[in-house]
């Protein structure tokens, strides 16, 4: 290789090389796209497979009257299952319970979660890891275990709550009445999931610029004003995300209800209703229709959150 050839090659590259560079870039882009799909493909296929297949299958099954123990009587009935469900008061009371649980738990969790996040944010020294470890305990405990703990605590024979609480008698049966039963269900749900919310909010708190708070303080803003004028507005994105994720999670509530009441005393929720039709009654058609409707509800919540409240998930998830 002589130096002249090298120089000529260099000149060519620098001259009309714009085109050649572009070709190389697209080659590179194509290779990158291919690698991207090789890497992300398997996860994507599984994600789509384990949810896409079931929802399509459920859509199909929901058009039949089909009982697992009477396969010979399987019959196409169109949308009749949906008609039955949507005109049934049980569906609407389960819907009411689910919405109530969602609204109450998420609202309470936001307030408590914010308070916990503030404490975690402010506490320093050796207490900091202690507090952060403690808060992880409810997060790590299995929902079923939490459900049993709360159920036994309020249970008529096993519980100590009736002895401790001043406003109920020793024989008060928390699980006999819809509202008191729902209260205990919500307590267990709140206990278990508040840490998650408070950790999301803690991350949001860390993003509130300290100098802004200092400036507000110098300007003579009270603690209250600083909270509502500086801290909260700066945390809007993380609050919204915490809210949406917890709401969707609460909307699927099943474990606590199944363990504590199995839907007795009017505490049926949508997930428990779907479980009862398909798994307990083995009415695959009717149950599939309930499942599909539950899925549609989740879609609606997502749609409202994103379109109406403008939750920016892309930003929240760290995409740029």
């Amino acid at each position: 290789m002589s130096s002249t050839t090298t120089a000529r090659a260099g000149a060519t590259a620098a001259g009309p090389g714009g085109r050649k560079g572009k070709v190389r870039a697209t080659d590179r882009a194509r290779a990158e796209a291919r690698l991207g799909w090789y890497l992300a493909g398997p996860a994507f296929v599984i994600l789509v497979g384990v949810t896409g297949y079931p929802i399509l299958q459920a859509l199909y099954e929901s058009l039949f009257s089909f009982r697992l123990t009477a396969p010979a009587d399987r019959e196409f009935i169109g949308l009749r299952n949906y008609g039955v469900i949507l005109t049934d008061s049980l569906w609407w009371s389960a819907m009411g319970n689910t919405v109530l649980i969602t609204v109450v738990t998420v609202a309470v969790e936001l307030v408590i979660g914010f308070a916990l996040a503030m404490v975690m944010h402010k506490v320093l020294g050796w207490l900091r890891p202690v507090v952060r470890t403690a808060i992880l305990v409810p997060y790590a405990v299995i929902t079923v275990v939490s459900a049993y703990a709360w159920q036994y605590a309020f249970g008529l024979t096993t519980g100590f709550m009736n002895a401790v609480l001043p406003f109920v008698g020793a024989d008060f049966d928390w699980f006999a009445n819809k509202w008191t039963a729902l209260t205990v269900i919500c307590l267990s749900e709140i206990w278990k999931t508040t840490p998650f919310i408070s950790l999301l909010l803690l991350a949001g708190l860390a993003q509130v610029p300290d100098d802004m708070l200092e400036a507000a303080k110098v300007d003579g803003a009270t603690a209250r004003e600083r909270l509502f004028r500086v801290t909260l507005p700066n945390m809007k994105a993380s609050i919204m995300v915490a809210l949406l994720f917890r709401a969707l999670d609460a909307f699927r509530i099943f474990d606590n209800v199944y363990i504590m009441t199995k839907g007795a005393a009017g505490t049926e929720t949508l997930s428990a209703l779907a479980y009862n039709q398909t798994i307990s009654r083995l009415e695959i058609g009717l149950g599939s229709a309930v499942s599909v409707l539950l899925f549609l509800c989740v879609l609606v919540i997502c749609f409202i959150a994103i379109k109406v409240f403008g939750v920016d998930l892309a930003r929240a998830r760290g995409e740029s």
Partner: peptide, 11 residues
């Protein structure tokens, strides 16, 4: 008796 609404055989 007390707690009839959640009383099973064991209770």
């Amino acid at each position: 008796g007390p707690g009839i609404d959640n009383r099973d055989e064991s209770a």
